[in-house]
Write a protein that binds this DNA or RNA. Structure first.
Lengths: 125, 125
DNA sequence: GCACATAGTATCAATAAGGATACCACGTGA
DNA sequence: TCACGTGGTATCCTTATTGATACTATGTGC
């Protein structure tokens, strides 16, 4: 892990849970991992098209951290203009059950949050 | 959700994943949820004993957010000294497969991180 | 009478994370 | 020749999150 939020593993029962969450808890990391899972190998520009709201700087940062944690593979083609491909590593593919569970729960329950179940939300953009 | 990290649900495929992560992504939230799952109903002081490094203020904050998100139930007994019990709601219990998957992955892979088991780590700072 | 436990609240500070903006070298297409 | 795309880097700023510390009212036990 690039840097655990609180850098200590006391190996209490919650430890594994919390450490794993910290790997995927970066603001955009779970979405990046999701897209690499759903669409396979993607280039930087393809990721940016799929996740338009993240800045270039942040996308680069989070991809680098995911790479450093061994979850994502970065392949650079020696050409100009540059071509870089990102894909899940075997370790990263191990996170797929988690991503699927997260999506399953979210799909089933997200309408309880922020979605226009609230009339106030219905009037917003 | 008390406040989504980036407050928009565009309902792209990653949306459900990322929104769910943001519910459990508070620094101590996943550990709190884990202990409420593992040990059932717990009092505030019991949680603090299980998670000694969190400050009282932060524990209160995160529990309040989990309650506001409907994941945790807070029961106050009208007595002195005060007695408050926290437990997972039905919605919160729906997160258990996620917590189990997180723990499973962490147990299988955490030795790659933060612990000096990696030779690469041994040579680095 | 005092220390302790309970479950907090209040306030300010510190740290971390992410955003905004400008810039880069080169090939390609118009 | 210029605009654009590629995949970034650099720097500073803003925001969010968490931590540190002090304090609270009451009952209980010593």
């Amino acid at each position: 892990m690039t840097k655990a939020k609180h850098s200590r593993f006391d190996c209490s029962p919650g430890c594994a849970v919390e450490a794993t969450v910290s790997l995927i808890g970066g603001k955009w990391k779970s979405i990046i991992l999701w897209h690499l899972h759903a669409d396979g190998t993607l280039r930087f520009s393809e990721l940016r098209r799929r996740i338009p709201n993240v800045t270039q700087r942040t996308m680069t940062n989070q991809l680098r951290e995911l790479e450093q944690d061994g979850l994502v593979h970065r392949k650079v083609y020696p050409q100009v203009p540059p071509k870089v491909e990102y894909s899940l590593t075997e370790l990263g593919r191990g996170l797929v059950p988690i991503l699927e569970a997260l999506k399953h729960w979210g799909d089933a329950n997200l309408d309880r949050f922020g979605k226009p179940s609230s009339t106030a939300d219905q009037t917003t953009e």
